[in-house]
Every structure is written in structure tokens, then in C-alpha cells.
Design a protein around this nucleic acid. Structure first.
Lengths: 204, 204
DNA sequence: TACTTGTCCTGTCATGTCGTCAGCTTACCG
DNA sequence: CGGTAAGCTGACGACATGACAGGACAAGTA
């Protein structure tokens, strides 16, 4: 589809778009600005992408591939005793830093999904399901061993917990306004995560 | 500042803007479309608002006033036994329907806040703190009675729980993709809320 | 080095939105 | 009914969009 030079230009446009998204509101990102920043012209941009949204989708796709590393933080993990607490802490930590590294694109994906755009929903689902799936499995296993409330739906609980983490991660700046110290955030998220999965208070 | 007729036009523009936000992506909402829908001209729009964002802020401000009704769902509530379970259910119910009624403006507020715009952060904080505040108080009281984990931060836990509810509420369409039934959502959110506040499984 | 070929980039243009101003219309009051 | 102020709009320059044709460039050939 495109040669070596073309690929480079295309990639540069994507990189510059990502920078623009980080520094200015999504609504105000213009093709002409992205092109200028990449040292090229709007016409070139349109050669590779149908519009800003199209290019954003590419960025999101890239990001969703990298998100597979998040799955590892939730698959085949211990959820009992101190090991369980460590699992919770690592999961919170991993998710928070992934969100910090990709905050610009993630908030646009969130918006797109909330607006009902299937393409964005799909990507958001892929990222979140990477964690929600294994987490639901863990809850299911605890249930079958009688170690978790049998009345809950593993999928709904896992999904809600991951939503919580993602939402707090996406609004980290605003979080202080609750009156909570910044350092309080991680341990308390881990607490809620552990509590939600196991139904018991963590033994730290 | 403005007479009777002016107020009416202004309000009509806001209403039409709200409708536009519900039916098309925020990024694509144009002044000219809002004006046309209101049966007036772009010039009139600019007489009342500096730009689309400015008008959206007005809408958000209105919404944040209505959100005070949410506070009542969390102030002076019982959190023990069956009464506690009812409190949780009512809070989840109230929040979910408030979000359903105001989803368009709420997602724009979320975006603005995530992008670091103080004006939107302030509004988001006002809406969420209406619940987070009283909820944190309840947790604090439980703590002082020895009925909740003394090591947690009431503010951080309350904030995270409310974030969870808000986030799930904002992505209700996407929620099915977890593999959870729609009817599972509410009871499981109430379960997590009760669990987070009290540290114990609910007695339904 | 000169020529050829296919890839890649850009100047330019028609279309449409933005945001402003002067001037016109409407409602209200004496 | 005429005057006044509030409210609305046509029109305009500036700018973004998206399409195309043609120019610039790298790489291979002789």
C-alpha cells in the first residue's frame, strides 16, 4: 500500500497528532495544525487519513495493541491472603501508569464510545476486556470454591471494578478535589479492588 | 443584561444545543447547525455566547444545579443491615437515571475535565462531590464506631466508588460487551457500593 | 551521468464555517 | 402614533476542508 518513505510520513503525522491531542482540546485539533507540526501540508494528511477522527482511530488501534500487556497483570493471579493484596496493588499500579502514558488518546476513545461510535466502543472494549475477562474468571473460580458471594455476577463486578480504575485513572488531576491526598489513591483503589473481587477485607 | 425576548432566544439556543449534543459527536457540533435548528442565525448565537464551548458551559452549569437532588440520596442515610442495602440500591438507581437524563452534557464535561479545563473540572467536582462528600462522612462515622476498616481514607474510597458509578453510568451501552446481562448491572453495582462503604457483604 | 519509472508531496481551487459589524426589524412606552 | 432601545440578520474577510493534477524525489538501468 505504501513505500518506506510514505510509511515514515504517515507515522510522523500520527506522532504529531498524538502530541496535539495531549496539548490542546480534541475539539480544536485541526488537520492544518497537525500537518504544519509534521513539516508537511494538509493535502499530505488527507492522502493517508480520511479526517482527524480517522487518524485518531489508528492511534487508538495502536494503543489497544499495547494494552495486551495489561492482561498479564490479571491472568492466573492469586487472590487470597497477602499474595492477593499484591495482585491488587500491581493491577492498580499497572493500570494507572498505562492510563498516564496514554491519557490523551484514551479520553478521546472514551468520548467516542460514550457517543455510541461502534469503532471506538470496540477499541475501548478490547482494552478493558483484557483485564475484565481474566478478573471475571478469577471471581468465578473463587465463587466455585465458596470463597466469594455466590449471588454476584463475576462479569458485572469485574467490569464495574475495571471501570472504576479506568475512570479514576483518567481523572487523576481532578482526584485531589475530593479532599483525598494523592498518595491515598493507590492503596484505597487496591483496597476496593481486593474487596470487590474477594468480598473480604485485605490482609496487608 | 437581557430582556424577555432575548432570554427566550438564548434559552432556545441552549435547548437546541443540548439536542445537537445528544444526536451528533461533540466535535462536529457547529454554531451554524445550532442556530438553524433554533430558527435563527449564527450572528444571534454569537450575541449570547462566545462560542460552542461557552454555551456548553452554561448547559453544564444548569445541569450541576439540578444535580443537588443527588446529594439527598447520600446524606443522613443508614448503612447497616437491610436499610444499608436499600440505601445502596437507591443511590445506584438515582445516579444511573440522572446520568441517563443528562448523558450528552455529562460526557462533554468529563472530556473537558480530563483535558484539564478548570471550568469543566469545577462543574464535574460539584456534581460528584454532592455525593462523594456525604458518602465520605458516612464512611467516617462507620470508622469511628469501629464498623469499617480504620486504615482506609473515607474521601478516597467515596470518590472512587462514585467514579465507578459515574463511569458505568456513562457507558451503559457498552456495558453489555463485558458479557454481563443488563439486569445484572444495578444489583452488582449496589453490591460493590455497599461492600466499599461498609467493608462487609450486604444482607439482602 | 543521463534517462526512466513509480512513489510521494504540494499548489491551488471550490466549498463551507467562523466570528464581526453596520444596519434593519420588532416590541414597548409615552 | 412616533420615538427609542433591544434584538436580529445579511454580508464580509479570514480560515479550514477535501479533491486533483502536476511537480519533486529516490532508485534502478545503461
Amino acid at each position: 500500500m505504501a513505500g518506506r518513505r510514505g510509511q515514515a510520513t504517515r507515522q510522523k503525522l500520527l506522532t504529531c497528532l498524538d502530541e496535539m491531542l495531549s496539548s490542546s482540546p480534541y475539539r480544536d485539533v485541526r488537520v492544518i495544525d497537525v500537518a504544519r507540526r509534521a513539516g508537511t501540508s494538509p493535502a499530505t494528511f488527507y492522502q493517508y487519513f480520511p479526517d482527524v477522527e480517522g487518524a485518531v482511530l489508528e492511534l487508538a488501534e495502536e494503543m489497544s495493541k499495547e494494552s495486551s500487556s495489561l492482561s498479564e497483570l490479571a491472568t492466573d493471579r492469586q487472590w487470597t491472603g497477602k499474595a492477593g493484596w499484591q495482585t491488587a496493588e500491581e493491577l492498580v499500579d499497572g493500570l494507572l501508569s498505562f492510563w498516564r502514558e496514554n491519557d490523551a488518546i484514551l479520553r478521546v476513545v472514551d468520548l467516542g464510545a460514550a457517543e455510541g461510535d461502534k469503532r471506538f466502543s470496540k477499541i475501548r472494549t478490547k482494552v478493558l476486556n483484557g483485564i475484565t475477562g481474566p478478573l471475571a474468571d478469577s471471581i468465578g473460580k473463587l465463587q466455585s470454591k465458596g470463597k466469594a458471594d455466590p449471588d454476584i455476577s463475576p462479569a458485572a463486578v469485574a467490569g464495574s471494578l475495571v471501570s472504576m480504575l479506568a475512570s479514576v485513572a483518567g481523572q487523576q488531576k481532578a482526584a485531589q478535589s475530593w479532599g483525598a491526598k494523592k498518595s491515598d489513591l493507590k492503596p484505597n483503589l487496591a483496597y476496593l479492588l481486593y474487596l470487590g473481587v474477594t468480598g473480604r477485607k485485605p490482609s496487608r
